[in-house]
Every structure is written in structure tokens, then in C-alpha cells.
């Protein structure tokens, strides 16, 4: 089976641009992605610009938890600039949407790695950092074709058993684009 050449649900990413006016400019990133947002942060009036960074020790989950608290009390004109791995970008975006923000005020920088989050369509397990297809599901063990069909809600690509029609087929792994 071929990997689909162009699937419309697959997001495209552009380097974020500063949007003004904004009551608050939030720069949210994983440590390895800080460089992507640094120039933009420097352009900002300092009073409105704020970093939301992952602590080296507590990691991404703590970042998301503190962001969630922060978004309760931000102005409606807040802008979010997000950088990191693809799954993280959409986690931040979904958390912001839950707080009432809309996509217009959220810019996602191109992911810092090509690792994908994968949703197993058979057992609904989510896997991180998938770089090749097929990928063995960590939940049900099935060999999954990694497709380009993408869910923003899950921040993930869909994985479907590659040899369901003939389980004796064991296709070679290909690195994902």
C-alpha cells in the first residue's frame, strides 16, 4: 500500500508572525524549540510578552497544567505562539480552545521533529514520536500503517493495521516524510 500523497486533513505549518494588537503575547514551547520563538519574543513590547516554558525537571505535563491555570485569567485578545513537537503543539491548541480561545489567535510553529503522534484506530492507544511506517502498536501489538489523515482533536495521525487482509504479509518499514 502507498502512503497517501496529499491528504487535506494534514496540517501545514508556517513560521509564526507577530500579531498585534494583543492584550497578552504568550510564547509557549518545549525547551528544544525555544530558538524558534526567541526572535519573535524580542520584537514584542516586554510588558505584554511572556514565556511559558517547560521546567527541565517537571516537563511538559507541568507546563500544560500551569498554562491551563493561566488561561483562566487572560484577556480575550491574547495571542499564543507555540513551538515544539507536533503532538505538543496540538495539546496546547486544544487546551487553549477549551479555555475559549479560537484558532485565529493561536499560531503553531513547524514541529521541531518529524516524530508523529499515532492513534491506533483499533484500540485507541496514542503513541508518540513515530518516525516510520508500519509501526507496532504499543496497545494491541498490531502492525499499523501510519496514514496522513490527521485529527486536530487528538493531535495525531491515524494508524490502521497494514496486513489485516493477509496477516502473513510483513511489509518493510519506511521512514515517514
Amino acid at each position: 500500500m502507498q502512503i497517501d500523497p496529499s491528504i487535506k486533513s494534514r496540517p501545514t505549518y508556517q513560521a509564526p508572525m507577530l500579531e498585534e494588537p494583543a492584550g497578552l503575547q504568550l510564547f509557549v514551547c518545549q525547551p528544544e524549540a525555544r530558538g524558534l520563538l526567541e526572535p519573535l519574543y524580542q520584537q514584542c513590547a516586554s510588558a505584554q510578552a511572556q514565556w511559558v516554558l517547560a521546567d527541565e525537571e517537571t516537563g511538559t505535563e507541568a507546563l500544560l497544567a500551569s498554562l491551563q491555570q493561566m488561561l483562566v485569567n487572560v484577556p480575550v485578545s491574547t495571542r499564543l505562539y507555540v513551538a515544539g513537537h507536533e503532538g505538543f503543539l496540538w495539546d496546547v491548541r486544544n487546551l487553549a480552545l477549551e479555555a475559549g480561545l479560537v484558532d485565529e489567535q493561536i499560531q503553531l510553529a513547524p514541529p521541531v521533529s518529524r516524530g508523529r503522534r499515532l492513534f491506533c484506530t483499533h484500540c485507541y492507544t496514542l503513541m508518540e514520536g513515530v518516525e516510520a511506517s508500519p509501526h507496532s502498536c504499543s496497545g494491541c501489538g498490531r502492525l499499523l500503517l501510519v496514514r496522513d489523515h490527521f485529527s486536530r482533536l487528538h493531535g495525531a495521525y491515524v494508524g490502521v493495521q497494514i496486513n489485516a487482509e493477509d496477516p502473513s504479509e510483513l511489509p518493510e518499514q519506511e521512514v515517514l516524510q
Binding site: 497517501d4 491528504i7 487535506k8 486533513s9 496514514r147 489523515h149 485529527s151 486536530r152 482533536l153
Partner: peptide, 22 residues
């Protein structure tokens, strides 16, 4: 098609995998 995966998608997103028509 999977409702659990496609939930929340916009019209063009959930038709993403359909070839040619886009």
C-alpha cells in the same frame, strides 16, 4: 471511517482521505 478519530473535524478534514474530489 471512525467516529472516534474523526470527531470534531471540519467538513474538508473528515473528507481528507477521499482521493481526487478535493
Amino acid at each position: 471511517w471512525s467516529l472516534a478519530f474523526d470527531a470534531g473535524m471540519s467538513f474538508s478534514e473528515w473528507h481528507g482521505p477521499v482521493p481526487m474530489a478535493h
